[in-house]
Amino acid sequence: MAMPLIHIENIVKKFGPFIALNGVSLDVRAGEVHALLGDNGAGKSTLIKVLAGVHQPTSGKIFIEGKEMHFRSPRDASDAGIGTVYQDLAINPLMSVTRNFFMGRELKGPFGTLRMDEMNQIAHDEMLKIGIDFSDPTQAVGTMSGGQRQTLAIARAIYFGAKVLILDEPTSALGQKQQMGVLKTMMRVRARGDIAIIFITHNEIHSQLVADRFTFLALGEVIGSGSKDDLEHDEIRRLMAGGVDIGDLAKEIDQVMAEASV
């Protein structure tokens, strides 16, 4: 089997006495969507921040294409090819699509001038590749829908060299149709075959629609993992709830209701 694009080994992250991650390991291959699931507080956010270079792990190793990496800053991580699309997307609503696309990495001509036509063209083409035909790249981002903004952020990360794309709950704040749009965008990126996608989500249906593999986190540890074929629907649901059976939960709820009616 092909070498994983990103290989994470036994990552431990402590904040003082608090153990946020207790030995997490993960492999993601190119052209694969790897869903990272878990309840609130499971350690998903901490793991992303370690991968994005925001936090340094207490111990453990990160390999990209077989080479061990040490990220001291978010810039190190993005230079190594890790593109993180956060929930707030790091987008400026008053600025145009193009100006956002190239923010901080503008194409310069002589005297620091912007190669605006070229930048407009690239922004348009890159967004078209993953599914949005944007007729006017000078339009302000504030007028775009949430799904379109998500696409902009993803297209930007890919254009600037992301080999590992981390999507932090990209469907969470969107309406039904836009969620599907973002999932389609992910599948187009997957079809390129050279990018590994880490998909963080709360939504088991979304994860089942697009993911090839799953890793479940609970209380800072991996409690289960496997490919799409290995896992049963109920098993996914059980693991997502942190290993609690939904049946157990129903019993507990009945119990509370019984107590309340006494």
């Binding site: 400026n92 609503p93 923010m103 990495r105």
Partner: peptide
């Protein structure tokens, strides 16, 4: 309107954290 610095000025005033996250 035409330079990288101009884009940085707009980005800084619009959303400082987003600008910083993108390396401005």
């Amino acid at each position: 309107s035409r330079t990288q610095l101009g884009n940085w000025i707009y980005a800084t005033g619009d959303n400082r954290d987003a600008a910083r996250a993108n390396g401005v």
